[in-house]
C-alpha cells in the first residue's frame, strides 16, 4: 500500500535561521498525525510548507493523485497544484477569518469551493451547503447569514464545512481548537473525530495542546527548534516519552 501523502526531508530557512529541518513522514488514508511543540518550534512552518502555502529550500512532497498515481508535487503545473488544493486537500486555519470570506453568506462560503471545482447548478450547491451546515451542527436556517454574525465556534465549524464539502482526502489543520471555550473545543473535537472516522480522512493537525493529540491523533511528532525530536504512536509518546523535551512537555500538562 502506498501512502496518500509522503513528506521527505523538508527543510526551510528564514535567512540563516532554521524554520524546520529534515522533517519526513508518511500518512495513509484514515490516519491522523499530530504535530506538537511550543510556539517557535517550527510546526506551523512545516505545516505551511507541506500544504503548499510556503516555499521550502530542500525536500520533496508526494501525493497519491486520483488520476495519475504517486506524484512529486514539484512536478505539477501551477493550475494542477491549485486544483489539488481545492479538491483533494483542504486547510483549516486557526483563525476562521483566515479561511472564510466574512462578507459572503455561510452558504456562499461552502458553495464557493464547490463552484471552484466546477459545480454550477444553484439548487444543488445550495442543497449541499445546507446539508453540510447540518453535519457540522449549524442551523441550516442561517444559510444566508454572514459568518461575521456567527460565534467563534460556529465560524470554526463553518470553516470545516467549507473545507469538507469537496470531499478532500487530506486535511491540514492549524490549531483548530485554539481560542475556543473548553466546552466548544470538546464539541469540535467530537465532530472532527466523527468526520475523520466516517469519511476515512487523512489529517495532519498542528497543535500545542496535548489533549487534542490524545483525542484525535493515531501518531504524533514532537518538534523543538525546527527539528523533529520524537515520533511514534500518540499514546506511546504521551505515556512513555523518550526525549527530554517531550518529557518536559508531557510533565507540564496541568491535571484537571
Amino acid at each position: 500500500m502506498t501512502p496518500l501523502f509522503s513528506v521527505n526531508n523538508i527543510t526551510k530557512y528564514y535567512g540563516s535561521q532554521i524554520g524546520c529541518a529534515g522533517a519526513s513522514f508518511d500518512i495513509y488514508p484514515g490516519e491522523v498525525l499530530g504535530i506538537v511543540g511550543e510556539s517557535g518550534s517550527g510546526k506551523s512552518t512545516l505545516l505551511n510548507c507541506i500544504s503548499d502555502q510556503l516555499s521550502f529550500d530542500e525536500g520533496h512532497i508526494f501525493f497519491d493523485m486520483q488520476d495519475r498515481g504517486f506524484c512529486n508535487l514539484a512536478n505539477l503545473t501551477e493550475p494542477e497544484r491549485r486544483m489539488l488544493s481545492r479538491t483533494d486537500m483542504a486547510f483549516v486555519h486557526q483563525n476562521p477569518r483566515d479561511g472564510l470570506r466574512m462578507t459572503v453568506s455561510a452558504g456562499g462560503n461552502i458553495g464557493e469551493r464547490l463552484m471552484n471545482t466546477g459545480a454550477r447548478h444553484y439548487g444543488n450547491i445550495r442543497t449541499a451547503a445546507a446539508e453540510w451546515m447540518e453535519r457540522v451542527e449549524l442551523a441550516a436556517g442561517r444559510i444566508d447569514d454572514r459568518p461575521s454574525t456567527f460565534s467563534g465556534g460556529m465560524q470554526q465549524r463553518l470553516q470545516i464545512a467549507r473545507n469538507l464539502v469537496t470531499a478532500p482526502r487530506l486535511i491540514f489543520m492549524d490549531e483548530p481548537t485554539g481560542g475556543l471555550d473548553v466546552s466548544v473545543q470538546a464539541k469540535l473535537l467530537d465532530l472532527l473525530r466523527g468526520l475523520v472516522q466516517q469519511l476515512g480522512l487523512a489529517v495532519v493537525v498542528v497543535t500545542h495542546d496535548l489533549a487534542v493529540v490524545r483525542m484525535l491523533a493515531d501518531r504524533m511528532m514532537v518538534m523543538q527548534k525546527g527539528h523533529v525530536v520524537e515520533t511514534g504512536l500518540a499514546d506511546q509518546v504521551l505515556d512513555d516519552p523518550q526525549h527530554p523535551y517531550t518529557q518536559l512537555l508531557v510533565s507540564s500538562v496541568l491535571q484537571v
Binding site: G232, L233, D235, Q236, D239, D240, Q242
Partner: peptide
C-alpha cells in the same frame, strides 16, 4: 502489559 500493547516503547 503496556509493553505488550505498544503503549510503552
Amino acid at each position: 502489559l503496556r509493553l505488550l500493547y505498544g503503549n510503552y516503547l
